[in-house]
């Protein structure tokens, strides 16, 4: 083979490897990112209350394109120690909860319209924890919990509260940061 043919072969190999590198880099980014929302909030994993990420009108938040009318708070969760019970008290302000799997993807979202007697309560669990809960349950008296299955063991619960008027901003901040996210231990 001539030198040019070797060079062409090496270029083709390089291009094929480049394609593989590209795909693996794109797939790995959500897991290696150090600035994504989960990595930034990892330190709040053990907190029982939601952590405020952006108060309405907060200019110093790390959140890109923040809505100045919305208070955003999050609970980072890890399901290793058991299901996580998220309980939010709804008020006069628009409020929504969204559930983000680590590595991307919103797998569930709910707004205050779904609240029962002013409380939005959701239990996040793995598929295995759901199966165990169903097996342990009394078929005559099933649980009334809203149970959702998280596709990953770790993730974020994001609370958004909208201040429709400027004067409602403190109230929205308070509502966003007062959501309870506790580990549901078995009795």
């Amino acid at each position: 083979m001539s030198r040019a043919a070797y060079f062409l072969l090496a270029t083709l190999c390089g291009l094929m490897l480049a394609g593989m590198t590209h795909l693996s880099a794109v797939l790995a980014i959500p897991w290696l990112a150090e600035n994504d929302a989960f990595a930034r909030l990892r330190s709040t994993l053990s907190a029982d209350r939601s952590e405020l990420v952006a108060a309405p009108g907060d200019q110093s938040t790390w959140l890109p394109y923040p809505d100045p009318n919305v208070a955003v708070a999050t609970c980072a969760y890890s399901l290793d120690e058991g299901p996580v019970r998220v309980s939010a008290r709804t008020g006069p302000l628009f409020q929504s909860l969204s559930f983000h799997a680590r590595g991307g993807g919103v797998y569930f979202a709910i707004t205050d319209r779904a609240a029962v007697r002013g409380v939005l309560e959701v239990v996040v669990m793995t598929r295995r924890q759901l199966d165990e809960a169903l097996a342990a349950e009394d078929p005559e008296d099933p649980s009334r919990d809203v149970r959702i299955v998280s596709p990953t063991r770790e993730g974020l619960v994001v609370i958004r509260v909208l201040a429709a008027f400027h004067s409602q901003r403190p109230e929205a901040t308070e509502a966003a940061r007062s959501v309870a996210c506790t580990i549901d231990r078995e009795e």
């Binding site: 959500p30 600035n35 890109p64 991307g104 979202a109 974020l156 994001v158």
Partner: peptide, 27 residues
């Protein structure tokens, strides 16, 4: 972008920007 079937590129963009997208059903 705010759904369970976001493609890998969308997930990577979200991870790199630190964004928290609005979920489908939320807005």
């Amino acid at each position: 972008a705010g759904s369970r079937d976001a493609d890998p590129y969308t997930r990577a963009v979200i991870a790199r920007s630190g964004d928290i997208p609005l979920g489908v059903g939320e807005g």
